[in-house]
Design a protein around this nucleic acid. Structure first.
Length: 265
DNA sequence: AAGTTCACCAACCGCGTTTTT
DNA sequence: GAAAAACGCGGTTGGTGAACT
């Protein structure tokens, strides 16, 4: 005998999530955690399959998510990691606190790919693009070698690749999954720092005796290093997002006032 | 102003892996 | 150990708003 089915396919809702569904899912997970996703929709009173709930939570409702556009440092890190890991979006996302694999994948496909192509870099191989007509006549071995023309693009490349080509020239990494972030991380972390206030939002605004249901602060690697951000308007821009968000999912004004107090303190 | 195309992103689908019975 | 379902990941699609003609 195998497992029980996670949900009967009949009567399972699809398509965009409503604010009411979001509220139910958030309330349920805040109270109970997600022991197993198959049970979540039933217990939360949702007509969704567990898979859909998991996706909605991880990609949109999770408390440690950053919201808003990826900044330049994050973009650069994604490019570096993609050069090493390929389309391993979940592994790349693991190196970018608060970002989801889906978000990174979307950003890659809609922005970074084009950017690299425009710069004459193949977004798949991270090598300079070949010149089609003349280069096509050359052998594959030659094509694999960067041409002198291609090197003309290197000044642009170096901006993204820190001056070396990890795929072709560098010795294999000790552990590809454990990219040394020491240099690039500092910049990313500084940008992430302000968004850590979102954690405070959850940890202090949402917290109750059942929260956190799992040790999510530990799960968000390195977040504990940072304090609450300052009170500058720039740094509190996240608050506006969350204000809208909290209204969308029906948490109301009082809740956000409390968060605001926590940030200002 | 209306129609069309483009860009973005949330959500779905399918498949390989892991877990449970 | 085998079978079956859950889980997690990566690819793809479809809806929506913006930009363009």
């Amino acid at each position: 005998m195998g497992r029980q089915p996670c949900c009967d396919k009949l009567g399972v809702k699809k398509g965009p999530w409503t604010a009411e569904e979001d509220r139910k899912l958030v309330n349920f997970i805040l109270t109970h955690g997600h022991c197993c996703w198959r049970a979540v929709p039933k217990l939360a009173g949702l007509r969704r399959c567990g898979k859909s709930c998991r996706l909605r939570w991880t990609n949109y409702l999770r408390p440690d998510l950053k919201r808003g556009l990826l900044n330049e440092a994050e973009e650069q890190l994604i490019i570096e990691l993609h050069a090493r890991l390929g389309n391993k979006w979940s592994k790349i996302a693991a190196k970018l606190p608060g970002r989801t694999d889906n978000e990174i994948k979307n950003h890659w496909n809609t922005h970074i790919k084009k950017k690299l192509t425009k710069m004459g870099i193949d977004p798949v191989t991270h090598q300079p693009l070949q010149k089609p007509p003349v280069a096509a006549a050359t052998s594959q071995e030659e094509a694999a070698e960067p041409s002198s023309d291609a090197h003309e693009n290197d000044h642009g490349r170096q901006r993204f690749y820190s001056g070396s080509d990890h795929r072709q020239q560098d010795p294999p990494l000790k552990d590809p999954a454990l990219v040394d972030n020491s240099s690039i991380d500092m910049e990313v972390k500084s940008s992430v720092k302000d968004d850590l206030a979102t954690n405070v939002f959850w940890a202090e605004g949402f917290v109750n005796e059942n929260w956190p249901p799992w040790d999510f602060l530990d799960a968000v690697e390195g977040y504990g290093e940072f304090g609450v951000s300052s009170t500058s308007s720039e740094n509190s821009s996240w608050l506006l997002d969350y204000q809208t968000f909290s209204e969308d999912i029906g948490f109301g004004d009082g809740f956000m006032n409390e968060v605001d107090m926590n940030v200002k303190d």
